[in-house]
Design a binder for these strands. Structure first.
Lengths: 196, 196
DNA sequence: CCCTTTATTTACTGATCGGTATGGAAATCG
DNA sequence: CGATTTCCATACCGATCAGTAAATAAAGGG
């Protein structure tokens, strides 16, 4: 069993704290001092447990995806009616983006959007996440098209891009202080663009 | 007339260069070394001509607004039909966001979105810009409501928030590498949400 | 008990950050 | 011409950046 001195902190809880720091300040804006202070550990402990800043960010990103993003994605993929699935996806996102228990906005959208060259790996990881998210929306729409939930000939790629764009815009709005009601109204209006 | 040694660079051209650096890297991601290199001047010249980094950013922001944003705003406010005005606003934005002559995306949206406390003044200036932009959309919609271009009882605040959200999402998409055609398709879909 | 292993602490590294002091160069003024 | 004013170039400032070396502390294995 565990040889050597046991670690004096909860690595899971510390990673959650790191998620919050990155969520609020972004990859570049989060300094190691910010992180270690929020996590309640000192620098060598962070490096021993999580690796360098980029590695920690990737672990925090995984944790974030497993936390704030699972409920919307499950709704998207498990609700039978395609329109209802997309609507629930957006509404749950609006809820998460404005959840007072978390920092406002979305780590994937604005965690590393405009940054220096040094942050390119983090920015690339987030870009992949956004593309993957849009691809999942598109796959869901294709499923709906096959099921007759969308008019034949619907450009599902363009429609997926539209809903992904709305989601990313909502993240910016939430980061800018928009309230939950405002975002839910945006969702209602976006759903009015559903193909006739 | 000009007393003392004349400056050896074109301040207007140098500010344009600074705009591009902030546009691409954001406020925090743009270091003074990045700026001086792109502007072709050294640090004391930058400080003498433009002030400190925050002051330079505000001047670059003004220049940006006077450049990339005037055509869309003029279309929004000068085209008579409200629906056409909003559509042209979005289409010109899509054009600007993907103009290969500029960095992709929008300085106002992602110039300082997730950042450290030190960048709070810049982030606040951009937030004001976004709020002001949404307010102008809202004012245009109110004008259209009075002119009968929108159904009586339309929630113009929510509608303005929706179009502002689409615009901000398009900025994220452009920054992520989306092409002009994709953004124009997003505009078409967003206009389908226009109140019946 | 001692030894190995792992974690924590403190203090430090070189690099870069934004910002500036200083001295010389280029112009107009008298 | 000399004096003044402004700008430019080099070199520097303290602070902070991400990352680490070295020593100590706490556990289990023998």
């Amino acid at each position: 069993m565990a040889r050597g001195r046991p670690r004096g902190f909860d690595a899971d809880a510390a990673l959650d704290k790191a998620v919050r720091v990155f969520w609020q300040k972004g990859y570049e804006g989060a300094s190691l001092s910010d992180l270690t202070e929020a996590m309640g550990i000192n620098r060598p402990s962070l490096y021993a447990a999580f690796g360098d800043k980029e590695t920690l960010f990737r672990k925090a990103l995984d944790r974030y995806l497993a936390g704030a993003m699972t409920a919307p994605m499950e709704a998207l993929e498990e609700i039978a009616d395609t329109r209802m699935a997309v609507c629930a996806w957006l509404r749950l996102l609006a809820h998460s983006l404005t959840d007072p228990a978390h920092p406002p906005g979305c780590l994937v959208v604005h965690g590393a959007l405009s940054c220096s060259a040094e942050a390119a790996p983090a920015a690339g990881a987030l870009l992949e996440c956004r593309q993957s998210g849009e691809a999942r929306v598109r796959a869901r729409l294709e499923r709906g098209l096959a099921a007759g939930d969308l008019p034949a000939g619907t450009d599902v790629a363009a429609l997926a891009c539209f809903f992904a764009t709305v989601m990313q815009g909502m993240a910016v709005q939430a980061k800018s202080g928009a309230g939950r009601d405002a975002l839910l109204a945006v969702v209602d209006r976006a759903m009015a663009a559903w193909p006739a």
